[in-house]
Design a protein around this nucleic acid. Structure first.
Length: 581
RNA sequence: GGAGCUGUAGUUCAGUUUGGUUAGAACGCCUGCCUGUCACGCAGGAGGUCGCGAGUUCGAGUCUCGUCAGCUCCGCCA
């Protein structure tokens, strides 16, 4: 028997006193007093207390219910004698007249403070937690706002295939074997990139999609193998059009979902500046601590470490931490970070009673004066210096900078949202391992035309692309570009990254062909929904904004996927598994 | 591929530094008592492959090696 509910648990209050209601939900807590029993009933709206009095039928049975049981009750809203002010429904309780247990629960395997492993194994129970309920609802609100906004701006949502074609440029593909053409494979899309460009050629003009993307790469706290992005593409548009619509979109979504006002337009910065000043292509602009290049000014005589570095052509760069002196242990951690990024080491300097303090102090013939002067260092500050190839020094100090941010909460604990456009990424970079050029963004990005002419043969790494990232509080939350709509130029790019003509034809022939039919100039962007929601909610893990996430091993502890399959399934696909063990 | 942290009852943890009797606590579960709780209380009970496998030792939850799993980071992520 289903007692059809009249209300949700937490939607009642003292004004409902005297009414008869029917509630459905789970037992959250049960307190047995012999002659009567209190039950905290929970549904997605919250908790309300039920009281089972001696005179009702089934009093003995309610004593045998446990946390997690699903029940329905009919009863009267009554005012409590002793009110509970910790509860929104704490002024009332439901005096139960009639009730039914829909289903019994095994003892609950998940506590108030569950481990990550337990949460993932019993995800359906973890989802009943206040946090997951709130996060899923928030995520829904964000996505609904996005859909409404895009529709209002004249974009239409078009779905693109999940079973698509492998394009092994970039991330590793997830492959799906074909049965009808055994030996051939589909790939799950890393993004709908090519399809959305084909939609532009197809006259869709303004496209968007809340789309699932798949990348078979290692996971991180903010990275899952499948994730959701808002895919956007506009015909007859350039970067300024994309910036404008994206900025207003984020402004409106942030305002309606989180109640925060952010100014538009967003700050912009070139890739070059981001790398040289922040040591990152996704700089956290919520605080200073910028990297300074003192290769010219700072040449303390007799300090052979620096002198020889400069002679080699290395740069001397540093960041000055005002008013903090990290401990030896903390400096060791920072040194390890710098070395991870390829620096030979991390030099540090403090001033104590006018005297410079540093492991390398004894080498400083000028007592460190040229250092303290060029960096404007004062007592109480700590100076970190790296002498390395310029790019190495920057990324090393970039890592140190973020360590200091976390150590001293330099980004502040306020809900400040700093959006930043990073522009002018390089088109190509040289892959040392594979001895060939690759595209920094993706091969469909439009290179800057004049750079292409000047540098294509001699120094391709100097060619800029018309691509851009949107960074929020030091996290990349969107990436996009003006696309290459010129077939000959697209072919040049493919050739530069070493795609042999036959390979090119096999992988991208259909696309190059499509480009022949009057491709409109177009541009787009793809914000990552999961990461954006994660930042707005202040969650440390992206798993907490996804209903059914995977572990760092890309496994699902609940369904135990991935798993072996039956031999007949493999037979149908003509696949043989090589068991390495 | 590499580094670090973690793994003990259904759950969350203590015990590992310094090897030594029968591995503990809390919550949960089971049985009983209780007329106003909201962390209800009281009495009793069940519940353990100390992740797994080797090794050292008279003796291993504890030491060593390997391995698996979870988390974080580097590489990787057009």
């Amino acid at each position: 028997m289903l007692l059809k509910r009249s209300h949700n648990c937490a939607c009642l209050n003292l004004t409902d006193k005297g009414t008869t209601v029917i509630l459905n939900g789970w037992i959250k807590k049960i307190r047995d007093f012999g002659k009567f029993v209190f039950v905290d009933l929970w549904d997605h709206t919250g908790i309300i207390q039920l009281v089972f009095r001696p005179e009702i039928e089934g009093l003995a049975e309610i004593k045998h219910c446990i946390v997690g049981d699903s029940i329905g009750v009919k009863g009267d809203v009554v005012e409590r004698q002793d009110k509970n002010h910790h509860l929104s429904t704490g002024e009332i309780e439901i005096a139960v007249n009639e009730w039914v247990r829909y289903s019994h629960s095994e003892p609950f395997p998940i506590s108030d403070n569950p481990s990550e492993e337990t949460r993932l194994k019993y995800r359906y129970l973890d989802l009943r937690s206040e946090k997951m309920q709130r996060n899923l609802r928030f995520r829904h609100d964000v996505i609904k706002k996005i859909r409404d906004f895009m529709s209002e701006k004249g974009f239409i949502e078009v779905e693109t295939p999940i079973l698509s074609k492998s394009t092994p440029e970039g991330a590793r593909d997830y492959l799906v074997p074909s049965r009808l053409q055994a030996g051939s494979f589909y790939a799950l899309p890393q993004s709908p990139q090519i399809y959305k460009q084909l939609l532009m050629i197809g006259g869709v003009d303004k496209y968007f999609q809340i789309s699932r993307c798949f990348r078979d790469e290692d996971l991180r706290a903010n990275r899952q193998p499948e994730f959701t992005q808002l895919d956007i593409e506009m015909a007859y548009a350039d970067e300024e059009d994309v910036f404008r619509v994206t900025e207003v979109l984020f402004r409106d979504v942030v305002h309606s979902a989180a109640g925060i006002s952010v100014p538009v337009p967003f700050q912009r910065m070139t890739y070059e500046e981001a790398m040289s000043r922040y040591g990152s292509d996704k700089p956290d602009t919520r605080f200073g601590l910028l990297i300074e290049d003192k290769t010219e000014e700072c040449r303390p005589e007799g300090f052979t470490i620096l002198e020889e570095a400069i002679k080699r052509g290395d740069a001397v760069k540093g960041i000055l931490l005002k008013g903090h002196e990290p401990s030896r242990k903390e400096i060791d951690s920072m040194t390890a970070l710098a070395k991870d990024k390829g620096a030979a080491g991390l030099m540090w300097f403090k001033i104590k009673e006018g005297m410079i303090q540093s492991p390398v102090a004894k080498f400083l013939q000028d007592k460190g004066e040229s250092l303290t002067r060029s960096f404007a260092m004062e007592e109480g500050d700590t100076l970190f210096v790296v002498a390395s190839a310029s790019s190495v020094a920057c990324s090393a100090l970039g890592a140190v900078r973020l360590y200091l941010r976390d150590l001293y909460q330099l980004a502040g604990e306020t809900k400040g949202l700093h959006f930043l456009w990073v522009t002018d990424f390089p088109m190509f970079f040289y892959n040392e391992d594979q001895k060939r050029y690759e595209t920094e963004h993706h091969p469909f990005t439009m290179p800057v035309a004049e750079d292409m002419e000047r540098y294509l043969e001699k120094s391709p790494e100097k060619i800029r692309s018309r691509s851009y990232d949107l960074v929020l509080n030091g996290e990349e939350i969107a990436s996009g570009s003006v696309r290459n709509h010129i077939r000959s130029l697209q072919k040049q790019v493919f050739e530069k990254i070493g795609l042999a003509p036959e390979t090119l034809q096999k992988r991208f022939g259909f696309f190059l062909k499509a480009l022949q039919y009057g491709t409109p100039p177009h541009a787009g962007i793809a914000p990552g929904i999961d990461r954006f929601v994660q930042i707005l909610l202040g969650e440390e893990s992206i798993r907490d904004v996804i209903a059914f996430p995977k572990t760092t091993n890309a496994a699902c502890l609940m369904t135990e996927s991935p798993s072996e399959v039956d031999a007949f399934q493999l037979d149908e696909l003509e696949i043989k598994v090589n068991n390495k063990n």
